[in-house]
Amino acid sequence: MSDVRDRMVARAAREIARGMVVNLGIGLPTRVIDHLAADFPVCLHTENGLSGIGPTLPYEQADRNLIDAGGAYVSTIPGSAFFDSAVSFALVRSGRLDLTMLGAFEVAQNGDLANWKIPGKFSPGAGGGIELAQKARRVVVLTTHVDRKGNPKLLEQCSLPLTATACVNRVFTDMAVVDVAEGRFHLREIAEGLSVADVVKATGAGLIVPEGELPRF
């Protein structure tokens, strides 16, 4: 992983407060766990039916019945619990999930999220993503600021099918930390070595920039 992405993931890890129940989506969000201290009190939830996820295990030590929703072989810790899929999503929909971290194709300035379908190209189904995005108490997105072709992923409006409407609270990218509030993007932090102008240029919607020096990550 490139240095700046590693710093972005490390910065995102600071979003997790002590005692939270957290679901980490597949991809970059899963790596957030590497930046949490082993004794940090947090309950990780995976939608296939486990609260209290322990460390990922190598092939030789894996339990064939114990995966997370991304298919990684994980372990339990003292206090873990298993449950069925209805219970798992009752936990999500009833407000017991404090935070979810998800990937994105597009985020709109009103908090709309598109991360599950590119019509005609990619439509594997959303799995548990729709309920995570719609019902977690706080939704943060980890994504590159622009796509592989250099097009911005933070937009005035999403063009792809939505995962959920007005659900994103904060976006961590390889360029910036951006909050979504009152229908606008607000620049909060900026990656080392970049200027505000760099971030503004790479953003496909208006960006509210506060006065004074911004924190760096």
């Binding site: 039916g49 486990l50 339990d63 298993f82």
Partner: peptide, 11 residues
Amino acid sequence: YAAAARNFSPL
């Protein structure tokens, strides 16, 4: 059911 193999089975 074992561990995370429970998922949709009871339903």
